[in-house]
Simulated assay, not measured.
Amino acid sequence: MFSVPEAREELAGLLPVLTEIVAVRADAAELAASLDGGTPTGLGGLPELKAAQARLDDLMTRVQETGAELKGFAPLLVDFPAELDGVPVLLCWLEGDDGLHWYHRADIGFAGRRPLP
């Protein structure tokens, strides 16, 4: 369980990892499309795709080792288990958010996303 300040601190430390996930994810998508008969890419071929996939696995593991939960990949969605007023919640960061400003009840999910009080 994270407090809001703890989750914000953890997110700040994870931002470089999350930024790298976005970049490597884009490279992997381009490489996969190229290998599937799409437009050739200067990024490489199958060995580079395998390397990108391995790097993504490593980066996603690093996120989960913090206690955060990686819930979405495209776009990235990271939840931090917490409690607000005695209710289990997930503090929620979505790719593009400038910080940790949202939560949703654990039993409702992303559809119940609300601004943090």
Rank of each mutant, 00 (worst) to 15 (best):
F110K: 09
V22T: 10
L14C: 03
L91T: 01
D36E: 13
G37N: 10
F80H: 05
A52V: 00
G109Y: 11
L100E: 05
G13E: 12
L59Y: 01
G99D: 13
L116C: 14
S3H: 02
G37V: 13
E69N: 06
A74K: 04
E69K: 05
L90N: 10
E65Y: 02
H101K: 08
L35K: 04
L46A: 11
Q64T: 14
L77A: 11
R113K: 15
S34F: 08
G109E: 13
A23P: 00
L11M: 07
V22H: 00
S3G: 06
G99P: 12
T61P: 00
G37E: 07
E20L: 13
R114D: 06
E65Q: 14
L15W: 02
P16E: 07
T39N: 05
L100H: 06
Y103D: 03
S34H: 07
P88Y: 09
R55L: 15
Q64K: 12
A28V: 01
T61L: 15
L116A: 14
V24R: 00
A33K: 11
W102N: 10
K71M: 14
S34Y: 08
V78M: 07
R25T: 09
D98A: 07
H104S: 11
E83M: 13
G96H: 01
A32W: 08
D58Q: 15
E65H: 05
H101D: 11
G72T: 04
G45F: 10
G45W: 04
D98N: 02
G109V: 09
